[in-house]
Design a protein around this nucleic acid. Sequence first.
DNA 1: TGAAAGTTTCAGAAATTTCTGAAATCCATG
DNA 2: CATGGATTTCAGAAATTTCTGAAACTTTCA
Lengths: 183, 183
Amino acid sequence: MQLTPLHQEFVLHFGEMGSRWGINRTVGQIYAVLFLSKVPLNAEQITEALGVSRSNTSMGLKELQSWNLVRLKHTPGDRRDYFTTPEDLWEIVRTLIAERKKREIDPTLTKLRQLEMQGPAGDNYAEARIAELRELIELMTGFYDDMERLETERLVKLMTVGSKIAGLIDKAGAIVPSLKPRS
Amino acid sequence: MQLTPLHQEFVLHFGEMGSRWGINRTVGQIYAVLFLSKVPLNAEQITEALGVSRSNTSMGLKELQSWNLVRLKHTPGDRRDYFTTPEDLWEIVRTLIAERKKREIDPTLTKLRQLEMQGPAGDNYAEARIAELRELIELMTGFYDDMERLETERLVKLMTVGSKIAGLIDKAGAIVPSLKPRS
DNA sequence: TGAAAGTTTCAGAAATTTCTGAAATCCATG
DNA sequence: CATGGATTTCAGAAATTTCTGAAACTTTCA
């Protein structure tokens, strides 16, 4: 497994971005290699391609599995695990968003609710602020749940028409029932 | 600046979540204190509330300023800087998304475009994969740009109606020009 | 101008995270 | 049920990030 210059650059970039994305360099690089590879790769091949230790690869793959970002493939007569990323990029995006929500938002929503349950603590402003934040997160995650359920096809259409969609809703929140065709 | 138990818990939570959110513990805690405070606070008050060093607070506030997450207030006759978070939570969300996009997505988009500019590198699959990823990011950031421009009021409505909005678009991508009122 | 009040910078200490190599474990097969 | 190919675990090393205290700097005003 020798990386071409293209692979190299891509892999290094994913490594650098890793920390901003909440994963570490090696995990980012492993993902990058898998993403660009047409065929599934085993841990040994990844290790060689990246020049890291075998155990580091093992841990990185475990991490990627915990994020649901890689799939496992097996070939008969070979008992090593081979890894790929989904062909469908939208599936990847969905997974990424779902996992980030789970890690970055859900715990906070739980905590906010818990704080509210504890009842008044004598600081009206803080309590109102917490309630408001909880409501906002609920609105956004509720919307996310709706979008999550849409087939990719419709989702892409929705994104393509973009802000036109807002024209379909009046300020009162009603869906405008009829509309002149747009140029 | 003594923190109530409510503040305490909230602050500790934001500190813990900090690393998942791409900021560090102190920065998260500073933000939490400011978020719950009705009145603007100066660096000294924050330092005392959190029990960290003055310099740490200073660096944390600098970081929050670089994220555009805090506002500066001045009172006549006092030359210390007082900090607040915006009253409007939607403004906070917009800032957060804008900054994360800037840090987590834009550099990658730039890199992908640069890799494509370099011309064919002899791995069709990898090249196609990169192009596809670039297109997907462009679609999503384009949609984001559209949403960014909407007034909050409409945005909230949009989120509230949620998936109903998808019913307004047919599979071909045309906006359905008329619609029976929904129950 | 210089003293006072406040803020920032920065080098090193402390803490945390990541990475490695060796040992332990797993498991299909002879 | 032992062997050997493969993976995982884990304790410590290495690297990175965060935090601190001291010094430097900035601004205001007497």
